[in-house]
Amino acid sequence: MTSLQIVFLVVAAVTLFSAGMVVSARKLMHAALFLVLTLMGVAFMFAMLGSGFFAVIQVLVYIGSIAILIIFAVMLTRNMMDSEAEASNRGWQILAPLSLLIFAGIITILSSWHAFTSVRDLSGTAGEDVVALGKALTDPNGFAIPFELASILLVAALAGAIYVAMERKGGRG
């Protein structure tokens, strides 16, 4: 048991616990805050996997914008929420075993894969080459087209979001 393994286990335990709280917390605001914690844990995992860049991106994009957006949405819709009401629907007693079953299935299938237990020393690696990533994203022979498509998707999502959420004055709004 190396120290790295201990750190991993601790982070994993915290992350999974907070993930559990995200899906089960009675108050949605609490769930949102636990989501932030979970995302932090995932960022930590990214760093441990040797990708400092994506760890930073995770913090910036997920925590910095998505989680904040969700918190905004929670606050905007809060007056409808009954803090005494059930947070989960009635099916959860059946769905919990089902989820465990899926988990077991995934593990079973993965464990039959030859690379499942492969080990690699990541401590000495230099991490990802961000310059190469940037070049690959803009290289016409690389991923320029997916990159452009992604940007179009973002713009479309942005415009669509504004359109959908816009409060219509008069008319059938």
Binding site: V22, V23, A32, S88, I106
Partner: peptide, 22 residues
């Protein structure tokens, strides 16, 4: 896998749609 299954559970059981999104 654990995180994924937790997510599925949340999606399936949360009454609040914001929870589903989480």
């Amino acid at each position: 896998a654990g995180l994924f299954v937790t997510g599925i559970f949340g999606v399936l059981t949360r009454r609040n749609v914001i929870g589903v999104l989480m």
